[in-house]
């Protein structure tokens, strides 16, 4: 096994399991749907709330996607092979999360214009929303990857993983929606974007290390 062949097999796996990606997308759409149905379908509510709605839906669907990311690897013995491959476990984790991010985020960005429109989000500001997603979602994936690694060997790990990880998503959601809100009211939002990028970068560096530690402990 080397990094390239690992990356290739991860890619093939995700591409073949299209349904998982589609499910994450459907989940995203459904959470968004709940807001007009459950709260208020008027433009007066939806337009200012749209950034927050999109980001809550994104955070939840990413959690769903990340939650079971190592489950199969754990069950079929692949994790044991990662550990004994002599390759760097943090780097393997990094590659895996990166591929996951790509596969989930691209379709999500594709349906975003439509959904934003349905939420009366001003189309001129769509680029801001896309920027927050591109800069903020890596943090959500990388932080989630730690929770997933911690709970991979537990029987009812899913809820536990949500409990562990969701509080850590708060800053990302706050700054992302803050940026969108600032853009909507014509204020500068580059500061928030910079903070999002900084959080994602930190997560990108630290999380593979912590996830690797957790995987090793889970295999105990």
């Amino acid at each position: 096994m080397n990094y390239r062949s690992f990356l290739k097999s991860e890619w093939l796996t995700l591409v073949r399991r299209k349904q998982d990606t589609i499910n994450a997308l459907l989940f995203f759409v459904m959470v968004i749907l709940l807001f007009p149905l459950g709260v208020d379908p008027s433009k007066a509510f939806l337009e200012p709330a749209s950034g927050g709605i999109v980001w809550c839906a994104v955070a939840l669907s990413i959690l769903m996607a990340v939650e079971s990311m190592y489950k199969e690897d754990f069950n079929d013995g692949s994790l044991e092979q990662w550990l004994t491959s002599g390759l760097s476990l943090p780097y393997l984790v990094f590659l895996k999360v990166f591929v996951q991010w790509l596969v989930v985020i691209v379709p999500l960005l594709l349906v975003l214009p439509l959904l934003a429109n349905m939420l009366f989000f001003p189309i001129e500001q769509l680029m801001v929303m896309i920027s927050t997603l591109l800069l903020g979602t890596p943090a959500l994936f990388f932080i989630g990857a730690i929770g997933s690694a911690l709970t991979v060997s537990l029987r009812r790990g899913a809820v536990l993983m949500l409990l562990l990880i969701l509080p850590l998503y708060i800053p990302v959601i706050i700054f992302a929606t803050g940026a969108i809100r600032a853009a909507q009211s014509g204020m500068s939002y580059s500061g928030q974007l910079a903070i999002l990028a900084a959080i994602s970068l930190t997560a990108l560096v630290l999380s593979p290390l912590m996830a690797a530690l957790s995987i090793k402990a889970s295999m105990n």
Partner: peptide
């Protein structure tokens, strides 16, 4: 557990 990915073919598994 042999570390074989069920979604990949025999060939692809060995190639990995």
């Amino acid at each position: 557990t042999p570390g074989i990915k069920s979604i990949l073919s025999v060939n692809e598994n060995l190639r990995m």
